[in-house]
Design a protein around this nucleic acid. Sequence first.
DNA 1: ATTTTCGGTTAGTGTTCACTAACTCGATTC
DNA 2: GAATCGAGTTAGTGAACACTAACCGAAAAT
Lengths: 216, 216
Amino acid sequence: MASTPVPAPTAPQAPQSAPRPALTERGRQKADRREAILTAAARLFAERGYAGVTIEDLGTAVGVSGPAVYRHFTGKSAVLAAILEGASRSLLDGGERVLAEAPDAATALRSLIRFHVAFALGEADVIAVQDRELEQLDPGVRHEVRSLQRQYVERWVDTLAELRPDRAEVELRFRAHAAFGLLNSTPHSARTPGRRPADGAVRGILEEMAWASLMS
Amino acid sequence: MASTPVPAPTAPQAPQSAPRPALTERGRQKADRREAILTAAARLFAERGYAGVTIEDLGTAVGVSGPAVYRHFTGKSAVLAAILEGASRSLLDGGERVLAEAPDAATALRSLIRFHVAFALGEADVIAVQDRELEQLDPGVRHEVRSLQRQYVERWVDTLAELRPDRAEVELRFRAHAAFGLLNSTPHSARTPGRRPADGAVRGILEEMAWASLMS
DNA sequence: ATTTTCGGTTAGTGTTCACTAACTCGATTC
DNA sequence: GAATCGAGTTAGTGAACACTAACCGAAAAT
């Protein structure tokens, strides 16, 4: 299983509302800081939970203090929203990119699994947050994120349906969710370091387990 | 796969410190209320997260209000501690009971899976909390819970090692964790109701997926 | 060179919330 | 039957924290 190349997980990008890309010095520094806040926030939210992190923590983590964060986000929940929207958009985009290149359903499923494993290993913090803190979102954003997640799941379900037309869609959807649970377990094991196979091996094992569980 | 009977998940029980079981009226009512608080707390913590639930919420959920909870627990974190200690103890006890009766490793693994599926489906709230809120515990209790969880995992690893002596222990441990991720995904799907196979089917599918992923 | 913009600062402000104090009243004990 | 106990109540109290106000100074625009 060293065939189809998998696109690297895209960095979460500002959803819309880039009022001025601004090639100016300040504009670039601002974008960098925003990105730094998002990365630090993902790590902190993953470690201590959304409610366990203060705005002050967020600022301190990137070397500014407290209310400076409000120059980049309208509030604490907007930081969470940006993380989760970015994650679900990256997953959906990546999934679609992967499917567009797959010649048949079996390859498609293999590629989806490879892509998702790469994402879960590369963005463990984001995955952990996405799993845990969906409920903390404002209703509007929550609906948006749920919609993106649903679309991503449907790509898996469609692919599985080609491979196992004998099975009901509702079963395939349930199996896809269970497989996500399996693949997204890496942040958990990552929090218990040391007791884990080498990084290269982890990829292969997860891919094997996911395939076996889905097709069993 | 309708053979070995699986013991029902034990209700989480008071860890130690039962200063007086007290067959008196008041004693029984107090125990009932304590139990009611734990059940309600598990549901609320699962829904809104530990930090998203107030002591007032806990009281209201069982028909008393606010500070009455302190008659049963020394504080909010003690409620979480009781839930997580109960859960990890139930899992370990159940796992050991199941292993004691298994004639061979293959049956043992099948029984472990059946037991864990039953627990995850029956105590979805507790499972969700155990997955998400471990970090919120006071260090002492956290260490205790981690130790119990570790012992439970080791039962799985030992069983797997008999079936797959060719594989390194560290891989088997990683696989066990991934399988837990798969099995513990049910609270997630449970939060998205309707879109899920009938309860009877869910059991079988999860058991099949877990077995396939572990033995692949 | 002057004005404007804006990402940063420190110092509040109002609210939420865990926990405590003081008391009440029925069940338990003597 | 009187004394005690203890699970409940309501009314604080203090701390943490999201967010705002007012100001500052350098980069950007004119």
